[in-house]
Design a protein around this nucleic acid. Structure first.
Length: 387
RNA sequence: GGCGGUAUCGUCUAGGGGACUAGGACACGGCCCUCUCAAGGCUGGAACACGGGUUCGAAUCCCGUUACCGCUACCA
């Protein structure tokens, strides 16, 4: 189980943009892989066809590229693996760890509603696990649709989480969950485990909203006879009001910050500090420095609140530290977009331009401040002379 | 409701039994520097959720309470 080379993956669903929380998860996965000489992989979880879009997938690539968080192997599209996922599910049917369930969604919804009405928590009663063999044959030949359910064993399922330590769930609280839908497609937990096994993932690092999925997934690994990866559950990122970060908190996509004039290095640095601390009061760091300092011991358990003010300050720090020739690459195009100058003109007056950046970079927060403050310097035609 | 997770200044955090008069940073106030705006320096206010243990000693360990968050789908 101790793998020689760590393999981690970032597995977003392409249902929107690259969210800052996702970006931070990607960053920690990347940092761990790089620090310990492993691989950082990218898997697009597009099995929810109704919500997945190509634009979102593109946005994830763009966001990751902008941040400089590049992945090592070909992107894995979860949707392309449904056949293998299904085979794994059937392997469980074959080895007796799963069974066919003929209950319809309507029946299930009805029983769930009844349970709720009488204030009882609903859990599948395993009635289809008690079907006689001939009854199963009869329904099968009658063409009745069925799902595959995992038979949760007795006992308790626990693991040693890299950030939380020991976490245990009594199996009796886990119902026999569905692993394969009536249409033969895998349910999330099935697809994740099947794919993580296939991708030989050794450390699953993800948001702590997946903590309660973990015991189910561990049970699946065991049923499939595969070694377990390690798990690390990162805290969530909340908005200023303490609620889960969402659109009403304003900018939540990394592209929003790119357009707001935030440097990728500053974004990464700021995000890293939400849920991780290198200790020793160290705050301003380059990606390379974070890689040196990264350690799962520094990972925090508490959800953090995203404070845009500190992000701006962080950007100011990175701006001051950035060499002008690097800044020129970012500011130049922005200056052109603002209609202030052209690439040719800047090249002609390069030393003047660099001196100007040197002057302005220390007094800017968002990178756009530089453009705004530089504007007067490009209006020399009207005879203004600062002398 | 059930299960799980979390709890240090407003925010990000340091701290992991005595070094805590609880440190740093953001934000906020004051002062200095300064032609402006920044940056920088100095400085002020600001926190261990509550209650019980354990211990000579608890922010640190244990239990309970409370609050917040997550999961509880043929979503991911």
């Amino acid at each position: 189980m101790v793998a020689s080379v760590p393999r981690l993956r970032f597995a977003p669903s392409p249902t929107g943009y690259l969210h800052v929380g996702g970006a931070r998860t990607a960053l920690f996965n990347w940092l761990y892989a790089r620090k310990f000489g492993g691989q950082f992989l990218l898997r697009i979880e597009d099995t929810d066809k109704a919500r997945s879009t190509d634009d979102s997938t593109r946005a994830i690539f763009d966001g990751l590229e902008w941040l400089g968080l590049l992945w090592d192997e070909d992107v894995v599209y979860q949707g392309a693996n449904v056949d293998r996922n299904r085979e794994d599910a059937y392997a469980m049917l074959a080895n007796g760890t799963a069974y066919r369930c003929f209950c319809t969604q309507a029946e299930l919804a009805e029983r769930r509603a009844a349970a709720e009405a009488s204030k009882e928590s609903f859990k599948y009663d395993r009635r289809c696990d008690r079907l006689e063999a001939h009854e199963i044959e009869r329904r099968l030949s009658a063409g009745e649709p069925f799902t595959l359910r995992f038979r949760v064993p007795e006992g308790t399922t626990s693991w040693d989480d890299l950030v939380h330590g020991e976490i245990a769930f009594p199996n009796k609280d886990i119902e026999d969950f569905i692993i394969l839908r009536g249409d033969g497609t895998p349910i999330y937990n099935m697809a994740v485990v099947s794919d993580d096994i296939f991708m030989r993932i050794t450390l699953v690092m993800r948001g702590d909203d997946h903590i309660s999925n973990t015991p189910k997934q561990i049970l699946l690994y065991r049923a499939l006879g595969s070694p377990l990866p390690q798990f690390a559950h990162l805290p969530m990122i909340h908005g200023l009001d303490g609620k889960k970060l969402s659109k009403r908190h304003g900018a939540t996509a990394v592209s929003d910050y790119e357009h707001l004039g935030i440097l990728p290095g500053a974004m990464l640095n700021f995000l890293a500090l939400l849920g991780w601390s290198p200790g020793h009061d160290i705050e301003v760091m380059s990606l390379a420095r974070m890689q040196e300092l990264f350690d799962t011991d520094g990972l925090l358990r508490k959800a953090a609140i995203f404070d845009p003010k500190k992000l701006e300050w962080m950007n100011g720090q990175h701006l001051s530290l950035a060499p002008v020739h690097e800044l020129a690459l970012i500011v130049g195009p922005a200056l052109e977009r603002a209609g202030l100058t052209s690439a040719g003109a800047l090249a002609e007056r390069q030393s003047w331009y660099f001196a100007l950046l040197e002057l302005l970079k220390v007094r800017a927060r968002p990178t756009d401040d530089i453009v705004r403050q530089a504007a007067p310097f490009f209006r020399d035609e009207i005879g203004y002379d600062a002398e």
